[in-house]
């Protein structure tokens, strides 16, 4: 046990300072924190790797008041990755409908923005726009954690939401 504590002590705090914490932006309609429901609509899982990275101590997403939630009922933001495969359309629609207003939709990655490399396939809808209205697009393959953080904060601070 002491080895574990020692390791924590030796590691110290690695979180990097960037931007203002959410609690200072106070956009109307939301509280002081932001809950995100992520839906993978058929990504290659590259975008998920960077979403995961946001949780590591360097970016420490949750320390800024942003967290990923399991239930769409708790969410403010729907974050979608992947080109939206035919098989995921229904699940995406249902998840979106389960999120109470005001809500925002953020498309993450080239695939979610326009279908990316999979655009011409019979099996995809060619991006989130093809299925539900999108408020913000973040291109990249995959976008970096810094770009993700910025896009999430941007999506949160902006108003009014167009998907309502």
């Amino acid at each position: 046990m002491w080895k574990l504590l020692l390791k924590i002590f030796q590691t110290g705090i690695l979180t990097e300072k960037r931007g203002r914490p959410l609690s200072q932006t106070h956009p109307p309609g939301f509280g002081k924190s932001l809950a995100i429901r992520h839906v993978d609509a058929g990504s290659c899982n590259g975008c998920e790797l960077e979403l995961w990275a946001l949780e590591n101590p360097y970016y420490a997403l949750s320390s800024g008041g942003v967290k990923f939630v399991a239930s769409p009922r708790h969410a403010d933001l729907l974050l979608v990755t992947g080109p939206v495969t035919r098989a995921m359309k229904e699940a995406l629609l249902r998840t979106r409908d389960a999120i109470p207003g005001p809500r925002r939709v953020l498309a993450v990655g080239d695939c979610a923005c326009n279908g990316g490399i999979f655009r011409d396939s019979y099996a995809v809808h060619g991006g989130v726009d093809g299925v539900i209205p999108v408020d913000h697009h973040l291109p990249g393959c995959p976008p970096s954690p810094d770009e993700l953080l910025e896009a999430i904060h941007h999506a949160f601070g902006s108003s009014p939401p167009s998907s309502e």
């Binding site: 058929g42 080109p83 995921m88 699940a91 999979f118 396939s121």
Partner: peptide
């Protein structure tokens, strides 16, 4: 099968460099 993107179909008639991406 939920993430089926039709990869085998996409490869058809492409050049080698596109296939690499």
């Amino acid at each position: 099968g939920y993430t089926h993107k039709g990869v085998d179909g996409l490869f058809r008639n492409r050049d080698i460099a596109w296939g690499a991406r």
